[in-house]
Design a binder for these strands. Sequence first.
DNA 1: ATCGCCACCGTTTTT
DNA 2: CGGTGGCGAT
Length: 755
Amino acid sequence: MQEHLFDNRRQNGRETCEEGPDSFARALNPAQFEAVTATDGPVLVIAGAGSGKTRTLVYRVAWLLAQGVAPESILLLTFTRKAAQEMLRRAGELLGRTCSGVCGGTFHAVANTLLRRYASCVGYPSFFTIIDRGDAEGIIKLLIASLNLSGAGKRFPSKRVVLNVLSGVVNRARPLDDLLSSRYSHLLQFAPDIARLDELYQQFKRDHALMDYDDLLVNFKNLLQDHPEVRRELSHRFQYILVDEYQDTNPIQARIVALISETHGNVMAVGDDAQSIYSFRGADYKNIIDFPTFFPGTKVVTLEENYRSVQPVLTLTNEIISQARQRYTKKLFSNKEGGEIPRIVALSDEQDEACFVVEHILELQKKGMPLEQMAVLFRSGFHSFKLELALNARQIPFVKRGGLKLTESAHVKDMLSYFRVLENPSDFLSWNRILLLLEKVGPRTVQKMLDSVRSRPDSLAGLAVFPAKAAWKEGFDALVTTLRQLQEKRPPPVDLFDRLLEYYTPVLERIYYDDYPKRLADLEQLKNILAGYDDLKTFLDDAALDPPDIDTGRTRENSGEGCLVLSTIHSAKGLEWEAVFVISLAEGRFPSTKHTDDDDEWEEERRLLYVAATRAKQHLFLTYPRRLVVHGQGFETVFLTPFLEHLPQSCAHFSCPHRQTQSATSGFWAGHAGEDQRQPRFGAGNAPKERGNAKNQVSYLTSTRALAKDMCVIHPFFGRGVVEQIVTPKSVVIHFDRHGRKTIHLDYARLLAAS
DNA sequence: ATCGCCACCGTTTTT
DNA sequence: CGGTGGCGAT
């Protein structure tokens, strides 16, 4: 009966409910009701995908308010800012009044607000600018430029390698030392100073009043830890702490939750250990496992019923996750009968894959399903490029989530940099950016200018005395004058914007002469956003913490409405659609990392697929292209992702459409179909644990260590060849008897040694 | 020594 | 798109 009510309410999409415990009991199942109404100590809700965990939080907020709890004493911590807003909106709808006063947002936003409020009282830096990941990389680049790298050899390692190191520095997930001592030890021989990079980075941030995402959390944690009076005040104020997506918190966040609930222990955390997909940025799923020990006296509530998907979808997703090394806490079941069996489909290439998706979307649409009830998910942003072309060709409107953010485009960054130097004159990252925009001024000159800026307490005055060369004096003077004017009389943000745009427009037209009208439109969008703020600092904080999506071409009216959704799996978290297509599920693309030897990363990729598949309510399509374009020219045959390879035949409808599509492809391929016998191996022939211990069967060449010049190798498609040159540890030039010279990537190719 | 321009390449995931 | 390397101009 309760489930019946529950389902009706879900389907209507509108939840209405008179206040009072009885109505809540009617709308929730017993486990949910228990979680919602528990108030005397910590509660952990372990909830499977689609089991209504967000709903549980919404109801708890509404229930607390209905009990007469002051909104100010509720703190709702979510994964994204939008999630918090949405939950509060729904809770308000439930109650029939707004939830204003409830403090809700991400850990970072809350940490920022409270840090700014309390820091000055206790001697913490209260004046700072928040930097995003791009800024952090910019700083490191500046630092690298300032290091003397010429000594060891003029060649500095490629940018990609440096960025890998940076991600170690920027995401605290791995200390720099670890990276340098293992995978990147060769960097040290190029540049011994790189070992100090982390230290220099920290120093730079301190000197220039900059804080990255981690600093926000760490400083906030320290504030609570070192100052009992602040901790108690906050703990007293926030009597009810609610945390969503707890499996994606990092240890510092867990500590913050503990500190802020010190006086009452009134924490409700909600999460699913099988959906932990953010370890790359420091999240630790052990947080949710250890919650009961961390918070003694925890009531654990498990939600195992899935209200989202039909049983066949659930059967498949249960299978996917059951092959994980780690045992998860629950097995989902559904009472939604019927439904289609999910399909796993191989297409000949990306083009065909895009066509397949488009055709099925049109078909579903013809049957009456609105476009916004369908989504296409993929591992990485660029996997959808081909599909985007196909959708444009058929004029199917779509929005891409998790794509480029407004504040990530160069021109918006430029504009924000002017704001930032006005707000924080020691923000040298922004100084660097805006000075580079001057004509005939390059990195070298900017370095000298920055020295001059640094030499005076008043940065702008320091800049003004720099001896400008005649060639660019005009532009330089214009910049100094503009900034000086604005520094003196601080106009409201929108006026400030107009004045700066006046200065910047000629610059924009010079630099982006080919597409500046489009960029001007983006800036117009930025202005609209800015219009909602009367405080520049708050605007800059938000721009860094919650960068808005870029709406190319669409008006605010129809953005998102009636559009198909394209999304990375990470950005699809917590959402659901009637029909879901997961594309590019090919080996080499899906476990996308090259470090597939790391078990934890491997398992996280599996969970990622689980998250993707559990977004579907009714229809689920899993597709992959059998051939991918690789480096330069030529295709490479790829296989189904290992996570789907060994599923029981019954849980999905497997299609091997090569029989139909092969003839449609070029003669070149059709002619060699015979060599290409290595179809996806669905059967139980291979053991599920193929990696590592399958060496006694066939051993593919995965490293150039096993290769030498003039050695004979066999490629599954190109056949016999001779190694000509070893280019990098992972790529090698091979001359094939029948196909000529090819560059082969060992991570993709299944190369065998020939005698 | 420094800057601008052109041609080419390769994309994890993100608060 | 943004980064990079080479080359010619200043």
